[in-house]
Design a protein around this nucleic acid. Structure first.
Lengths: 361, 361
DNA sequence: ATTCGTGGTCGAATCGATTCGATCGAATCG
DNA sequence: CGATTCGATCGAATCGATTCGACCACGAAT
């Protein structure tokens, strides 16, 4: 059996060569076009023919049309990219991200689209090589600009959730600044004058690039590449222009604890702390308790998100995370359908919990 | 301007037709093959030529080779499917799933593969239509069988994490049964004789299909479609063959609370509860506290997973979730490289916390 | 001076399906 | 009974790139 196998011996023996539509058609005694019709059921095919084709497919162990070929021919892959900046483990620890993702899935899933997770950790390479029909960037830091440019050249719809406005990108916005200002006003009305901020990550500190965590400086604030954090910072500054701050390295309870310890153990301890997420706020509350301070008697804590974290009833700004996701999903669908852009913007509402109270001295 | 636009007016006017490699090559004055080489840098191309091609690409606003065409030609799409049974919001609330996913990303991401999230909620349709190079099924219930069959016909590597053995599927296993038995023995040594189980979802109750939650019956246990839950059940039965149980509708704290209330408010209240996840265990502890019971004095609680849930120091079985993910990632890579199957199996270790103690009456 | 590489480029086949227009037979209608 | 239409099927072009073998020219070796 070695004589005639000289042309392509390895390939032929190891791989029995997956059958393709043409092979199925041949076995069924019909043309490839008819076989295609039989599978896609997008044209008139007699029942007898369809049965023959299906039988031939079964005989050859054919799994149906190759998705790769389909996506080339149709120009659609059925895949929506989701660009997330952090590592997954970090991004998914924040319930807001999950809620939003779930909103996206709810809408896109119903339309038969699957989600491709793209972590931005590598270079800007990955993002451009996947066969996506559309892409959503979440918490897009400014350094994604070049990747976005590539995507735009490719002509696919780009949706950005809470990002700086860019031409050709459909925005899904949240009133981060106004909402934070609202929360700050609440603190102001309670009489708080010494207020500190715990900020979400701002990107690398220009002065001392290190852990991504540390006391907030004017330089750092100015060079921030994080849109949402900056907006919330501005909202706080609208009421407390000179508030001190601490930048966390992630939206995590532990980070909030670090920040809280840092801010509350100083002699000029603030009477209230504006945390940019509920997870951070919980950390701050813990730090306060660890330092023997009572919340809200000794220190008020304001959160952001409206995550239901059990054991706590934070005063916070409740954002419609799932709706944000749904809106992103609808924006994708609109983009794919060639309809006009479908931007959206959402507002957060202040929910008073038991972590803020009148200043007490 | 209407006269000569009769042939294909709509398409030509709305879409400026994205340029393709051929167009770039033409403008650069080279052949398509050379242009391809210039982009892929997988062959000898003079620097001058490459520069010409790149310049032409820039002039035409060409974004690089179309990923769809590439994946057809190369037979690879760079996409790994991850099949998750629940809704994302539910699956991602369990830290174990996230940890594992992160392990997968760590390995596959380094190899330039992106993850396609596939929720199993719809029919078995979706799963087969995406252009994937490999697929990982997580917590695969038996009803995925047909989808797996399709995938296998397609000839792509299939990795299953904690699933019933199937031919052609590479298993990544955890010692669910043995580990649970170990935990049960720990309770046994502490003198517990009245023990109840809080089980992870088992699939629909054959007798009364409802919420997916309720008292564990022999019929339900026998008809379970959930592999992991069944294994852990068996491990508990190895020590306590007649233990009563309650089936939760998800791995959630709230579900644990429901189950705990149900089991602990009865007159024949157990002295210990085996929960099949740490989240469930926390819920049980909360329920106990709500009922005025002390843990572990009045009731011992055993968890599973080794998730670090703050505020609690559960006695639990610590499983290497991230390693499981990494192993799955390596199994994928091996499969894609045509190497022999790379299965793996992991063991959990008992970590004694402060939620179990000697029986006290 | 002739030959032997070899870097650089090109043609053409191929990946696997979809889809438009054409064809052909049969059934319907006038 | 001839013309029309409709349903079923087929051919061929197309989607956009990759890649193998061929080819050409030029410098080096004999």
């Amino acid at each position: 059996m070695g004589a005639r196998a000289t042309s392509k011996p390895v390939k032929a023996s190891t791989q029995p060569q997956r059958p393709n539509l043409a092979a199925v058609a041949a076995l069924a005694g019909v043309s490839a076009s008819t076989a295609s019709l039989a599978f896609s059921s997008a044209g008139p095919v007699s029942d007898a023919t369809r049965a023959k084709v299906l039988a031939a497919a079964a005989a050859l162990d054919y799994a149906g049309p190759d998705p790769r070929a389909q996506s080339l021919r149709r120009g659609r892959s059925g895949i929506v990219g989701v660009v997330i900046e952090d590592r997954l483990s970090e991004a998914f620890r924040d319930p807001m991200n999950i809620a939003m993702l779930d909103g996206i899935v709810e809408v896109t899933g119903a339309a038969g689209l699957a989600l491709l997770l793209i972590t931005d950790t590598g270079g800007a390479v990955d993002i451009a090589v996947a066969p996506m029909d559309a892409v959503v960037v979440i918490g897009c830091s400014t350094r994604l600009d070049q990747s976005v440019a590539t995507l735009r050249r490719r002509g696919i719809p780009i949706i950005a959730v809470e990002a700086a406005p860019m031409t050709g990108v459909v925005p899904i916005d949240l009133d981060n600044r106004e909402a934070t200002r609202l929360g700050a006003q609440h603190l102001d009305e309670l009489g708080h004058r010494q207020v500190a901020i715990v900020s979400l990550p701002l990107g690398p500190d220009p002065l001392e690039p290190g852990l991504g965590r540390g006391r907030l400086t004017a330089e750092w604030e100015a060079s921030s590449s994080a849109f949402t954090a900056t907006q919330r910072l501005l909202g706080a500054r609208d009421v407390y222009p000179d508030a001190k701050g601490f930048v966390a390295a992630g939206s995590l309870v532990e980070e909030g604890e670090v920040a809280g310890r840092e801010l509350l153990s100083r002699p000029d301890r603030p009477t209230a702390i504006i945390a940019q997420s509920d997870l951070l706020a919980v950390g701050v509350v813990r730090a306060a308790e660890a330092l023997g301070l009572l919340v809200p008697q000794d220190v008020s804590v304001l959160g952001f998100d409206g995550a239901r974290i059990d054991g706590y009833e934070l005063t916070t700004l409740v954002q419609p995370a799932v709706d944000k996701g749904r809106a992103a999903g609808r924006a994708i669908l609109a983009g794919l359908a060639g309809e006009p852009d479908l931007p959206a913007s959402f507002t957060s509402v202040l929910r008073i919990g038991n972590t803020t109270g009148p200043v007490h001295r």
